[in-house]
């Protein structure tokens, strides 16, 4: 808002010729800088988008066209072999299939994300709106999680899971997430602290218990924050790579997640490029649609955590 005022200032300034001229010149200079800035931004956006465009057009090019010397920004003729291959279930027994992978990913990720979110929200509510002995100590322990990188504990996790028979099953990808995530707790706690205590207290005065106050009052108020966290956690689960490779990669292909299916396609054979691209498109489209629909929540969600976290 203030910026608009600044831009309007020269027009409202007293009509002193000397100053006006100077300001005008500065104004012009600013405009030039603005234009350069816009061009730079546009260039940046193009650089970001070019790989996506290449991914899309290459998925429609026949292997012969892909490997011919001239590269075109539009397929000469649309070849759907890549997609036919992606949707072909006959080869699924060996390397699985993107659609099976997609289904598995949803099957493993959605319940975990939803339950984990609910649990994290409850924890965040307790940390932000309830007063109890040991709250700060408990929160301190949770803080430790943020410092501990997940990769460091992968090996012992693998050992434990293999001893209790979880390797080759989706449990290692599902159960831990259902306990909630520290990052989510921090984010939601931050959001809930912004909700006035009076609202919760009024609910309790009306005879709601703490838990129902969370469920009926706090949850609805925090819907945007919950959506942001849901989408971010879901995307995280969808794109999870190391865990699924380690815990599922050696097992039954019908249990592979999307990322495991894709990673099995990495090969030096350039004749396979079209298939790879088509599979990648199938893998990315749901995610990009979700992103476009929820970008408000994601971008605001991340920004909020940036400022307050």
């Amino acid at each position: 808002m203030t910026e608009i005022n600044v831009n309007q200032l020269p027009a409202q300034a007293p009509a002193d010729g000397e100053i006006k001229k100077k300001k005008l010149r500065r104004h012009k200079k600013l405009r030039a800088a603005d234009v350069i800035g816009k061009i730079a931004l546009l260039l940046g956006a193009i650089i970001i988008l070019v790989p996506f465009w290449i991914l899309l057009i290459t998925s429609f090019k026949s292997p012969a066209e892909i490997m011919s010397a001239d590269f075109t920004w539009w397929p000469k003729e649309f070849n759907l072999d890549g997609y036919i291959n992606a949707f072909n279930f006959e080869t699924a027994a060996i390397t699985s299939n993107v659609l099976i992978g997609l289904g598995n990913t949803l099957l493993y990720t959605l319940p975990t994300t939803i339950i984990g979110l609910f649990v994290s929200g409850m924890s965040a509510y307790a940390f932000s709106k309830m007063h109890f002995k040991g709250r700060e100590v408990l929160f301190g322990v949770l803080l430790l999680t943020m410092v501990m990188p997940g990769t460091v504990v992968l090996i012992p996790q693998y050992t434990i899971y293999s001893m209790i028979g979880w390797v080759g099953t989706p449990f290692p990808l599902m159960i831990p997430g259902m306990f909630g995530a520290a990052g989510t707790v921090f984010f939601l706690r931050q959001f809930m602290r912004g909700v006035p205590d009076e609202i919760v207290e009024a609910a309790e005065m009306d005879g709601l218990g703490k838990f129902r106050a969370y469920w009926m009052i706090m949850l609805p108020v925090c819907v945007p924050a919950f959506i942001a966290q849901f989408v971010l956690n879901f995307i995280g689960g969808y794109n999870d790579y190391l865990g699924p490779i380690l815990f599922l990669g050696e097992g039954d292909p019908s249990r592979f997640t999307l990322q495991v299916v894709l990673s099995n396609m990495v090969s030096p054979q350039e004749s396979e490029t079209q298939k790879r691209m088509a599979n990648a498109v199938v893998a990315l489209v749901p995610l990009i649609i979700l992103y476009l629909f929820s970008q408000n929540f994601i971008i605001d969600g991340i920004s909020v955590s940036a400022v307050k976290g």
């Binding site: 924890s123 509510y125 109890f132 504990v153 306990f179």
Partner: peptide
């Protein structure tokens, strides 16, 4: 309130202890 607070706040901490701290 203390009991309920612990019950509600605890699951992520337990998750951390089981799935991160113990493996460490």
């Amino acid at each position: 309130e203390t009991a309920l607070g612990w019950a509600m706040a605890l699951p992520p901490v337990i998750g951390f202890l089981i799935f991160t701290f113990a493996p460490l």
